[in-house]
Amino acid sequence: MTPIQLFDPASSTYTYLLADAAAREALIIDPVDEQLERDLAILRERGLKLVWSVETHAHADHITSAAALAEHAGARTAAPQGCNIGTAAVQLRHGDVLRFGGEELRALHTPGHTAGSMCFVWRGNVFTGDTLLINGCGRTDFQSGSAAQLYRSITEILFALPDETVVWPAHDYNERSCSTIGQEKRTNARVAGKSLAEFVKIMDDLNLPKPRRLDEAVPANLSSGLRHDAGGNDGVPPPAQGYAGNIPPQTAYEWWQKGDAVLVDVRSDAEREWVGFIPGAANVVWKQWPGMKMNADFDEQIRQAVPPGKKAVMLCRSGARSAHAARRATELGIESYNILEGFEGDPDENGQRGNRGGWRQRGLPWRQG
């Protein structure tokens, strides 16, 4: 099985799509926001369900589409624990395993390019991010970088892999696609045959200009690609005092069926298409891509959707956006409630939703998009 290697010309970034052909489940590594439509199209064409969006580190040269893939395709996000990407659902540690179908991706903590950088092993392949490039390596002069740590990560962790392991880097600027551990041991100009002191001097003498998008990309990537200037960083749900209260999915369903409330689905259009929708719900988007911008027509649409005298019960994927929408509807004079756990619930670190689960896990009505 070979990974699907995708390329972003603007940043020379490689994105990798891995799939279990039998289960039709997939995982993506280092996706790029400007290539979102391309990646979604490939998933559709191949009939794949994206279950993980994974970062090797917080990038400085492009903005990730991780949050967009979570909303569009229902993927969970994962990132190295040491990178401070607080919006990632799973904070990865050395040795952690992510599963998709019957496949497993294993995390290796390889600090140096950044303090939290990770590489990922799948079958006979290693996805090296900016830690190890073809005939080179990532820079170490900013973002908590350390030449000494990078040397040890390459020589003690990556070079301990079998020589035939295929190396898939996050970047290449010379139209090369892959290498092997054995080849890099023998020929890598920065590392092969070099002592720690020699390597540190090479890195100290590079004097590279800072990445063009550094000031824009790093803050956005610490929020899984949610840009602060686009109003995309929702953070945690607001306090319950901002709306009437939080209710479980079953209660919301009962109110809706009795005619006491209107069920309002505030997820994006693409999210309902990919993940599933609830027949009969009022679809009033809270935020929409690109950039998760506010729906400028939300106020008008929610007033039209909820007749006077009825309550609004708000639903999103996990209960965060719907809390914000419930607060705004309350400000408009509508008695509004937030549905805890949302459509899918908030899985634990093993991907299990247990007994709490969201709307779909409770067996309440829904249909595939």
Rank of each mutant, 00 (worst) to 15 (best):
H324K: 07
S318K: 13
T64D: 07
P3C: 05
E341H: 14
H94R: 08
T155E: 08
R106S: 06
A75G: 07
C137K: 11
P80Q: 02
I28G: 07
K287M: 03
A323L: 03
A192K: 05
D348I: 12
G363Q: 04
G102H: 07
G235P: 09
I42Q: 08
S12H: 14
P290F: 00
P347L: 11
D215E: 11
D260Q: 09
T87M: 12
D204K: 12
K258D: 09
V166T: 10
D33P: 03
D20P: 12
A325R: 03
E331N: 10
S195V: 03
P3N: 04
R227S: 06
F7W: 06
E175S: 09
V275W: 00
T2Y: 03
V275F: 00
A329H: 07
L133N: 09
V97S: 13
S223W: 13
A323R: 02
S322G: 13
E273Y: 00
Q352R: 15
G276S: 08
V313F: 03
L92S: 11
W255F: 08
T15L: 01
V266G: 00
P308G: 04
R190W: 08
G245F: 04
V306A: 02
L18I: 06
D20H: 09
S336Y: 00
L69Y: 02
Y16K: 00
I247H: 10
V54C: 04
R303D: 02
L133M: 10
Y16I: 02
C178G: 01
R360V: 15
E103Q: 15
M292P: 01
W359I: 09
R76V: 10
G112E: 06
G291F: 01
G333Q: 06
D33L: 13
P308V: 11
W168K: 02
R76N: 14
I29P: 03
A261R: 06
Q149C: 12
P111S: 05
E71Q: 00
A192R: 05
L69H: 00
E271V: 00
K210G: 13
R93E: 14
A252Y: 01
D297H: 14
S12I: 01
N135V: 04
L50G: 07
A79W: 06
A41D: 12
L92W: 03
A240W: 12
D20A: 09
R190T: 08
A58H: 04
N207F: 12
N350K: 15
F277Q: 12
H109D: 06
K194S: 07
D234V: 13
V262I: 14
Q81F: 14
A220Y: 07
V121M: 02
